[in-house]
Design a binder for these strands. Structure first.
Lengths: 149, 149
DNA sequence: CGACATTAAATGTAGGTACATATATTTGCA
DNA sequence: TGCAAATATATGTACCTACATTTAATGTCG
């Protein structure tokens, strides 16, 4: 569906405004689809993303700082998202011995198993960008980099 | 800054993953910049967007349904965002005489004045897509439409 | 050493998102 | 007419974002 119809707006001021609205709308659309996948597994999108970062570190621990660095949303509150994961026994939290201000966060076996089940789900459903060719995806990425220059 | 550096990830699985992450990250980046503009005027981004829809209708009223149709985020709670605007006397809410289930929402003079001040601010700072040519913006929009097909 | 800045994380608060449910009104139709 | 379905909005709840503040540990430098 064209963006004009998605938000029932007949026309845009110019291509810049149209691209801006399309960008924000499409990002939200993709994230909504993705989080629907996790919902039945009791995970939210930020929780899933943090679990994946922890798996990337495994068996090394991660600190809250490291999580924030790698998250898309820098201002989100990693500390409280870890709370939720800890409550579900998907991660552990322990004061870092070498720097007692920091906290070592590790993914548990349960967490690894859950991610493994989700890998299968993710593989089954595409990321949502499969309508693009690899070349178009690269082109999209270049345009986005340019926006943030 | 390249997306790899923004989230401290050395490489991506493929161009699709990279574009996906870049898309979500860039949309958030743009929205954060935009909402910073409104902050000193006491408005949030969704509040601003609803005010603009109401200005577009002015002097006709809008219903909650109409607001939802035109919002980028369909699942956001227009009713409660209107609450906040009403508390600031930027909009009025009145039961619709012809259909007492519905509510007529109108922007007030204060609301119009606030938007007018913000128009100047917006004009001064670009939408953030000015690094693109008009042609690139159109191309970006086409790629995004294709993703949602 | 000791005051002071810096760093890491947690917490408080206002507002938003996503989704389920409730309440009131209107519509459709047996 | 009357009653179920549909419609319009509001409300409840869990979680999230954005940002300011707090608490604790560490670093620094006179």
């Amino acid at each position: 569906m064209k963006i004009e119809d998605e938000i029932k707006q007949p026309a845009f001021k110019d291509d810049y405004q149209k691209a801006y609205i399309n960008l924000v709308f499409t990002a939200g659309w993709l994230q909504l689809r993705q989080s629907a996948l996790f919902k039945e597994y009791g995970l939210t999108l930020p929780q899933f993303n943090i679990l994946r970062i922890l798996r990337g570190q495994h068996p090394k621990p991660a600190t809250v700082n490291l999580l924030i660095e790698r998250m898309l949303d820098k201002t989100s509150n990693a500390s409280r998202i870890v709370d939720k994961l800890e409550a579900k026994a998907l991660v552990t939290r322990k004061v870092c011995p070498s720097n007692r201000r920091a906290v070592d966060i590790r993914i548990t076996e349960d967490g690894l198993e859950l991610l493994q089940r989700l890998d299968a789900v993710m593989a089954a459903q595409s990321t949502g960008l499969q309508n693009l060719t690899a070349q178009e995806a690269a082109q999209l990425s270049d345009l986005l980099d340019k926006i943030r220059d």
